[in-house]
């Protein structure tokens, strides 16, 4: 399976890991939900592959 850490990059520069996801599709669904939240406006979401 493809694995990705989803990182939330906040406007103040803090980087917080949302979780580990097992397909790009699964992670993208979570990103879409996060982007709907008023509190998360201004955050960027980045997928990072875990180290082998």
């Amino acid at each position: 399976m493809d694995k990705f850490y989803l990182q939330e990059r906040r406007p103040d520069g803090e980087v917080s890991t949302v979780g580990l996801f097992y397909s790009r599709e699964e992670a993208e669904e979570v990103i879409a939900e996060l982007r709907e939240l008023p509190d998360k406006q201004g955050c960027e979401y980045v997928l990072v592959r875990p180290p082998e």
């Binding site: 850490y5 803090e14 980087v15 917080s16 890991t17 949302v18 875990p50 180290p51």
Partner: peptide
């Protein structure tokens, strides 16, 4: 895992 991530510090 050996490695950790950081969530909300």
């Amino acid at each position: 895992p050996e490695d950790y991530v950081v969530t909300d510090g």
